[in-house]
């Protein structure tokens, strides 16, 4: 008797499971919103350095039967530097993967914090790109953005982005150093000087660039503190007073995206300089190769920097360097 019950109940359970498994799920297609909506993505990566762009893509849309777009504007908490603009083109991607732009509006002159575009085409959906050139005033501060769109129905939507921390560090790209010609590097000035110029700015010279091809050793391109052991400054006559002892540590595989402009997604940020400890480091770096770099701390401990070697030229005894610098 008991066995029968067990049989029936398991049969019923199996049937129930079969039914549940075979039942077709009803998919629900959500009704599209018709009111004005917006969304923003930030397109740039890495630290926000003064002078560089922060790029956003601002999308806005409403149902075509409901109305059209009238204007779009961005308000930055700190006015952007010259060159800040909201693009008047909306982009689509063609079959070759290229962005093709169509002009949909006219930009109004940027007034203080506000950058605005009025739509001139009859459009109900658009994505505009916004380029914010980071101003000097924003250094070390945070900046926020309010993206606002208005439609012909009188609706207004706003999307807040940020806050984004603006880095304290400075950057200078593509300085050419040439042995005996322009070989004195000042981190304080972010500049390269000749021996005659260095003599007038002796207290600002942190490194000497030199190229030597010495038989039996690998010396080649070098960044040496003026106050380093003379064996690392062969045949170099320093201008009077140029004698600082900067700390230098060689680095490899740190191809900062901003400095190198290569495909590597590596960024040096303020934090790297803050955590950098060069107390036991040497005061010279010899055999510097292209795509290598050197961490530097000035003798007065006012600045820390990363010098990236973009390229070297053995025949010309020269190199192209780019610097990121952080004031302590």
């Amino acid at each position: 008797m008991q066995r029968n019950y067990l049989k029936y109940s398991s049969l019923l359970l199996s049937l129930l499971m079969l039914m549940t498994a075979c039942e077709e799920e009803k998919s629900i297609i959500p009704a599209a919103k018709t009111e004005l909506q917006n969304d923003v993505i930030k397109r740039t990566l890495g630290p926000n350095v003064v002078g560089l762009n922060i790029e956003f893509a601002y999308a806005m849309a409403l149902a075509p039967e409901r109305g059209k777009l009238v204007s779009a504007q961005v308000e930055a908490s700190i006015p952007g530097a010259g060159g800040t603009y909201l693009e008047t083109k909306t982009y689509s991607t063609n079959g070759s993967g290229e962005d093709v732009g169509i002009v949909v509006g006219e930009s109004l002159p940027t007034e203080g914090k506000i950058t605005k575009v009025n739509f001139t085409k009859d459009t109900s959906a658009s994505t505009l790109r916004y380029y914010y050139v980071i101003p000097e005033a924003a250094r070390g501060q945070e900046v926020t953005f309010d993206f606002t769109a208005t439609s012909s129905t009188g609706e207004t939507v706003t999307y807040k982005m940020g806050p984004y921390k603006i880095a304290k560090m400075d950057m200078k790209l593509d300085m050419t150093v040439t042995d005996s010609v322009a070989s004195y590097i000042s981190i304080a000035d972010m500049a390269v000087y000749s021996a005659a110029e260095a003599a007038t700015k002796a207290d600002k010279i942190d490194l000497v660039y030199l190229y030597r091809s010495i038989p039996g050793v690998t010396f080649n391109h070098a960044l040496v503190s003026p106050g380093a052991d003379k064996q690392y400054l062969p045949n170099v006559t320093l201008p009077a007073g140029v004698n600082k002892v900067s700390k230098v540590r060689k680095a490899w595989n740190i191809r900062d995206f901003h400095l190198a402009r290569l495909q590597y997604g590596v960024y040096i940020d303020d934090l790297d300089f803050e955590k950098l400890d060069l107390t036991e480091s040497a005061n010279y770096a010899i055999n510097m190769r292209a795509e290598s770099g050197a961490w530097v701390e000035t003798a007065d401990s006012k600045y820390r920097a990363y010098i990236y070697v973009n390229s070297v030229n053995n025949n010309g005894k020269s190199a192209r360097i780019s610097i990121k610098r952080y004031a302590l």
């Binding site: 690998t218 480091s281 010899i286 055999n287």
Partner: peptide, 9 residues
């Protein structure tokens, strides 16, 4: 080691 190697680090 290479000439100029910083032996402390």
């Amino acid at each position: 080691v290479f000439y100029g190697t910083d032996l402390r680090n």
